[in-house]
Design a protein around this nucleic acid. Structure first.
Lengths: 333, 333
DNA sequence: TTGTAGGCGTTATCAT
DNA sequence: ATGATAACGCCTACAA
């Protein structure tokens, strides 16, 4: 592979001038620039990004930590981030945390040790204190889907409380009053917030929160199945089920059908996230849209603005979920 | 951040010795090793991976090119690769090709310019000749889900022909004889192979290939919908539909139901890939298992073996698909 | 506008 | 087993 040195020799200029051309520095005359460009082409020269990084203390890479590489949610998030970053010539280094505190810390260490210019984290297990400490380091940190007090500028988050509120409100407005709820793991902020929204909607309509109709799931299919089993075994009476995410809703729906419950006629179900699946399951799932791909784009813009000096980008830190009505909620009125 | 130089000073040894300790080179006495380790700990020293890369000509990173970051298929593939690589201390740089020739080439250039130690590619649009040329370069190339003559050692592939055969055979054995087929884009090898398998099963049972019951889709939901629309408009008679992948099967199923066709009683459907969705749609989809996560693991092992000298790894280049029976195929017998 | 020269933090090759 | 010292390929003051 040709080096900058060979290019400079062939073009009859100095190393510095070649470097100026590659870094699009304007302080080069058109004539010499052309000479350099020609030489580069002839030698098929490509700058060595490693050497660039070492000398400039910049890697043009941003580290991403997601909980899982698969799954509809993280796929869209990564796609949003990568798309935005790539057109700016930056690339992503991706690693996983599996919602486990040690693994998340591990992943972060790993990314930092790779000298990423910035980190975009979707962490769930690590404490706020840890994050705050982390932000004092030299690597800029940005957070997806998490709001940490004092770090507003570094967060892209969804109003999960509002989403939880909208879901339950939609159910109530269809005339339901016996409403079960399957929550997400309560160590996760979003799960907590969605539940809080649910309670607010209940309170606003003077409906009590019934502990017999409350179950804490795992945000996965199994959680939905376990939840509805629990309610059925308890012989609880309910006409509607609010799930803190779509995967649990799908699990609950499948299990309900297998137990002879017709949906939505006998049981209405609403989810949260609007993952692809929501459109495919039968009946099509009414749910709350989580604009995770947009949020991914925005996180990338945040990095571009604060780390790569693209000052003119407009940043939206808070995103609002919205209801999407499909076929899984029955109108009791 | 402390440098190797400061460590050497504090430990009272030379740069070289410190380097030997970090690189786990055995030629260091226990006593000096301990001194160095202590110094490192005291200074909280972390090797600068960029400098290591420049000096050693190794980045410990492998580039991955997938068609899309989202979608059930690539998620599992990436997860498999990352998991395997990460325990070996290597990391992944991921980029996308969107099944477009220019974008795929772009992505590859990009990864090579980042000095990845190796590339794992899931390319669909680029020609075999291009790949062969690419392999002559200095960056080792490995291929997922593609078989290129002469590059056997670098490929991890699925026997798509067999899968296609198994799907149609399963349908035939349930007594169906009017069988429609929605293929994938024929510029894609896997789509071609699956179709070939379909034809073989037909021929083996002395059933003709009927062009009126053949449609070429796009491997996405829309392709399935368009395909079944086409068959319905043609007033074709068929009791079974074989789709070259699950997404098209899901699209077809939804559209069929919306047109009053009950599944599987009036129409049997079988897919290919066994993406998560297959278990969730109603009725649950009978399909062909594509072990893409295992294949991801294996691709990573291939890299570990050939690039990172983990000589003792066993490599399986060819994977066999298998039928999984669920509820979408009706037994006519 | 262009060139000179000193880093950037390691690894690797020789000696010792 | 350990130490000097030259790469590695580029960037960036500073000088000219």
């Amino acid at each position: 592979m040709a080096t900058i040195y060979e290019v400079s020799k062939l073009a009859g200029v100095s190393l510095a001038t070649v470097s100026r051309v590659t870094s699009k520095n304007t302080k080069v005359s058109d004539k010499t620039r052309q000479k350099v460009l020609d030489a580069m082409k002839e030698l098929d020269y490509r700058p060595n990004s490693i050497a660039q990084s070492l000398a400039s203390n910049r890697t043009n890479s941003v580290g991403i930590l997601v909980s899982e590489l698969h799954g509809p949610f993280f796929g869209l998030m990564m796609a949003g981030i990568e798309e935005e970053l790539r057109v700016a010539g930056k690339h992503v280094i991706i690693t996983t945390g599996h919602s486990d505190e040690e693994k998340e810390k591990d992943g972060i260490d790993f990314l930092i040790s790779r000298n990423c210019d910035a980190l975009i984290l979707h962490v769930e297990a690590v404490t706020d204190e840890y994050i705050i400490e982390l932000c004092k380091g030299k690597t800029p940190i940005f957070l997806m889907n998490r709001y940490v007090d004092g770090l507003n500028e570094n967060c892209i988050s969804l109003d999960n409380e509002l989403g939880g509120y909208l879901a339950t409100k939609a159910i109530i407005e269809k005339g339901h009053s016996d409403i079960a709820y399957i929550a997400g793991p309560q160590f996760k902020d979003d799960a907590q917030d969605r539940l809080a929204g649910h309670k607010r909607a209940l309170a606003e309509h003077n409906m009590p929160f019934n502990n017999d109709l409350f179950y804490i799931g795992d945000f996965r299919e199994a959680g939905g199945i376990d939840g509805i089993k629990y309610f059925i075994n308890n012989k609880s009476n309910f006409t509607a089920l609010v799930c803190a995410n779509d995967e649990m809703a799908a699990g609950a729906m499948i299990h309900a059908r297998e137990n002879g419950i017709t949906i939505p006629n006998e049981l209405s179900i609403i989810g949260f996230d609007n993952i692809i699946l929501a459109r495919y399951i039968y009946p099509k799932l009414t749910t709350i849209v989580n604009p995770i791909d947009e949020m991914g784009h925005m996180a990338a813009k945040l990095v571009l603005k604060h780390v790569y000096q693209q000052k003119d980008l407009l940043i939206q830190h808070a995103f609002q979920p919205v209801l999407i009505t499909r076929d899984s909620v029955f109108d009791l009125k």
